[in-house]
């Protein structure tokens, strides 16, 4: 589904952050990308989503057979790429419901499906509410405006549930969550696991992986994947910290 080959990227006119990332994700798989601060995890997530401000200086990203990097961010989203933001953005005055229905209809139109009207959308929302245990009142409020940190993260997973992407990238979804909120969010993500959907989680801590058990774990440091393995690799990291990674990176250089 997703094949990243030797991806190199830098901040526009600035520092190079990705130094040749290779990664392959198949449908149904859950991958965790772990790494210390500044290793390029979030950059990778945003480069895949198409955020401006990065320059691709080498490599390719193939998504469902197409050149992902050639698509505008909204085209990637319509093709089924979803990014759960680490810091979800507030849009005052625009209701969550309206925002999400607009998004869903853009995606449906792209797929050649009929748009959903407000009534049908409401019914869909009621069904999805159960997945993330989110307060219905939140949906009528403006997008993320005045939401607590936990509410924002839940709202991201709620959007994930409604939009049903093919590839979901979760950027530090666990950061800033207490243990109960983390459980709820993880439960929502697990409910979204499916043989047709791939999930890529970017995280600093192993904690999240206790609740969402990945098929593959990758360690990203210095802008490349240093090591890949099964879920045990995460435990290894937890015990040893990232120091060994840094040592190895230094060795590589």
């Amino acid at each position: 589904m997703l094949k990243i080959t030797n991806l190199q990227a830098r901040v526009a006119g600035g520092k190079q952050i990705l130094n040749g990332v290779n990664l392959e994700v198949r449908p149904g798989e859950v991958h965790a990308i772990m790494g210390p601060n500044g290793s390029g995890k979030s950059t990778l997530a945003h480069v895949l989503a198409g955020r401006e401000g990065y320059e691709i200086i080498g490599g390719t990203v193939e998504y469902q057979g197409q050149d992902l990097l050639a698509l505008a961010p909204e085209e990637r989203a319509r093709a089924g790429v979803f990014l759960a933001f680490q810091y979800p953005v507030e849009i005052p005055g625009v209701s969550n419901m309206f925002f999400l229905r607009t998004a869903l209809n853009e995606i449906r139109r792209h797929r050649g499906e009929e748009e959903v009207d407000a009534m049908d959308f409401m019914a869909l929302v009621k069904k999805k509410l159960k997945i993330v245990d989110i307060d219905e009142a939140l949906l009528k409020r403006p997008v993320n405006a005045g939401f607590s940190g936990g509410e924002k993260k839940r709202n991201e997973i709620f959007q994930l549930a409604v939009l049903e992407p093919t590839l979901a990238i979760l950027d530090e979804t666990d950061s800033g969550l207490d243990i109960d909120a983390l459980r709820t969010v993880a439960w929502g993500v697990n409910a979204m696991r499916s043989p047709k959907r791939a999930i890529v989680m970017v995280t600093h801590y192993q904690r999240l992986l206790e609740y969402i058990v990945p098929d593959r774990v990758h360690v990203l440091a210095g802008g490349r994947i240093l090591r890949s393995g099964g879920k045990d690799l995460a435990l290894h990291l937890e015990e040893q910290g990232y120091k060994w990674v840094k040592d190895e990176t230094a060795g590589v250089r």
């Binding site: 961010p73 909204e74 319509r78 979803f82 990014l83 933001f85 607009t102 998004a103 853009e106 792209h110």
Partner: peptide, 8 residues
Amino acid sequence: YYCQQRGI
């Protein structure tokens, strides 16, 4: 960007 990432 946030809106774009949702398909808008």
